[in-house]
Amino acid sequence: MAQIERDDIHLISRHSNLPASTTKKLLKDHVYNDRTAWVKFLKLFFISLGVGFTVSGILFFFAYNWADLHKFAKLGLVQGLLIAATLTAVFSKLSKDIKDILLTGSAILIGVLFAVYGQIYQTGANAYDFFLGWTIFTVIWAVMANYAVLWVLFILLINTTIFLYAEQVADHWSDIFVMALQFVINSLCLAYFLLRPKDPEVKTPEWFINLLAISAVSFATLGIVNGIFNTYEVSFLGLIIITLVLYGLGIKYGWENHKTIYFAIIPLSIIIIIAALLIKVSYDAIMFFVITLFVIGSVTLVIKNLIDLQKKWKNG
């Protein structure tokens, strides 16, 4: 018999006189987490919060601008912690999960180290070079741990570096160009994680892939909507061409691998772009009404398509 799911129990309960005690037992046996799941979760939960809070405690300590401490001691302390956490992760016999969390903690400490360095030598803690340094020196940790949360930190750092570089140094870069760049980089990351050879020991979690896909599509959408309402420039044309190609590839990948998310976010992005185009064409009442109908109609179609795909792929 197939796995009993929560919805099944709800449905049975709705249409029968099943006593609450039986429902309770069903839920407990088939839906709720059991002891094994709890032990696993609690370990991860406590070590994440433990490492996270300890590291942020140290982080805040330095943000406090601890003037009395000699610069040598400040740098030494962070480096000591960094080395201790990394060595524990590399050489101890802890489980892979715990090591990953320790490595994530030490990757954050790399940032703290740069911040402290910047604070001592007045390099300016906000400038893009701080994030650039942090990004570059996190590469080894990210690659070695191959841990989704650490990858999220790494990709976040890349995006922040680009954003700050455009803001602080490359004044002549237009918003559209920056968004196009971020779209391409996030898509490349996505492609890397989708296409890299499967490691039997470390599975790339679905939520991580989806997060990357959503961030890539968001940059494309923002960039194009921005381009529609601004004066024309060459990078806008480039962005449109890249978007067309990558969206096509996304749909192709989703189709071949039975991933519905690409059939949700890519059409939604296109709907938003078309709605923006329509507003650009005209501001009058009729147009707003047309857009309302267009959005309802197209979203409904997308949902219908999603339901059909789900059914097809489940049965096929």
């Binding site: 406590f46 070590i47 919060l49 433990g50 490492v51 996270g52 809070f53 300890t54 590291v55 942020s56 405690g57 140290i58 805040f60 300590f61």
Partner: peptide
């Protein structure tokens, strides 16, 4: 506070 919370969780 954060540091000691971290220790408690560890």
């Amino acid at each position: 506070l954060l540091f000691f919370s971290g220790i408690v969780f560890i």
